[in-house]
Design a protein around this nucleic acid. Structure first.
Lengths: 174, 174
DNA sequence: CTCGGAGTATACATCGAGTGAATAGTCGCG
DNA sequence: CGCGACTATTCACTCGATGTATACTCCGAG
């Protein structure tokens, strides 16, 4: 998910501590996959090493010592460049679904049945996301829609592949 | 992409060497992102350590010494289970597009402009994939379609988000 | 008043994924 | 005969991810 740049983005608003950054990240971007502490500090360590942030000395105070991380000019310009640049759109044509279909075909297993199972799993998840979408904030609704659109895309591909299984088996020599 | 299971799948057909496995993987699944040698051998090493494959001693012959890797019963049953199981459908609601939009909004940059740039990049890639799809084998056409479907899904999401930018800015407090 | 648990904050150890470079043998060709 | 192309594996290194250990403060039960 590009954690380093996301943290840099959060640090641009205001200097902060690792602990607070983790909580901000989780509420804004976590959505069921919280950032582990270990990763927060190792990432901050690398950002500091590369001059993107500077860490103050440990400051005693209420509670355990803490370090305040401040973004540098270099960090800001890296963030700037990253935000202006689009995400690379599907650069490598790879997908697990395809791998499983091909391996099933090559080994004489039923690719048809695998695709059916996959379709069912996708439909189930789509029902969950539809429900979530109805009953939540705009942010969650947007993210649910993102998931739904991509699940639909997979379903279209599953149907297409399903209808081409025989030809596919021939082409890969199975 | 789950390289270990893919290699296990290739090894189920017939025992093979690391080098050949890499070439088989690349022709079947590589599609512009060949598997680096380093990863092949470190992955095979882990599979051997975990009892999924066994490696013969180095065999001299025509060319440099080579090891033959053979899948074990344990390896076969793991592969079996993996092929029967569907891929987890969009389990965590996370996407880089969303992160960039939110960070742009929070920092007072133009999310609108970012989304326009992203749309243009996606449309450009869609034209490439459409061309590839026309002029190639069934496998490449299927993979191009997979990419196209997902790019369309992103485009729908980009348009949706674009129309909700004001409300989104309010909700995240930007 | 003290002991323990909840919350705050960071560090460390480990593993897998991914990458690039290094090594080493064989074969064919000029 | 020597040099490049091909075959084949190993090594060193970094990053991402995960789990666990450490240490400090505050607050309430007993």
């Amino acid at each position: 998910m590009n954690v380093p740049l996301a943290l840099l983005g959060l640090l641009e608003r205001e200097p902060s501590h690792g602990y607070d950054l983790k909580r901000d990240y989780d509420t804004l971007f976590g959505r069921g996959k919280p950032l582990p502490f270990g990763q927060v500090y190792s990432t901050l360590g690398r950002l500091a090493r590369d001059g993107k942030v500077v860490a103050s000395d440990a400051e005693p105070g209420a509670g355990p010592d803490r370090k305040r991380y401040i973004i540098t000019d270099e960090g800001v310009s890296e963030l700037e460049a990253w935000l202006a640049e689009p995400v690379a759109p599907e650069p490598h044509l790879q997908t697990l679904l395809f791998v499983k279909v091909v391996l099933a075909l090559m080994s004489g297993r039923s690719a048809e049945q695998y695709l059916d199972t996959q379709r069912a799993a996708h439909l189930g998840r789509m029902r969950e996301l539809t429900e979530l979408r109805r009953s939540s904030s705009l942010v969650d609704a947007l993210l649910a829609d993102h998931g739904l659109f991509h699940l639909e895309a997979d379903l279209r591909w599953i149907d297409l592949t399903s209808s081409r299984l025989a030809a596919l088996a021939t082409e890969i020599g199975a």
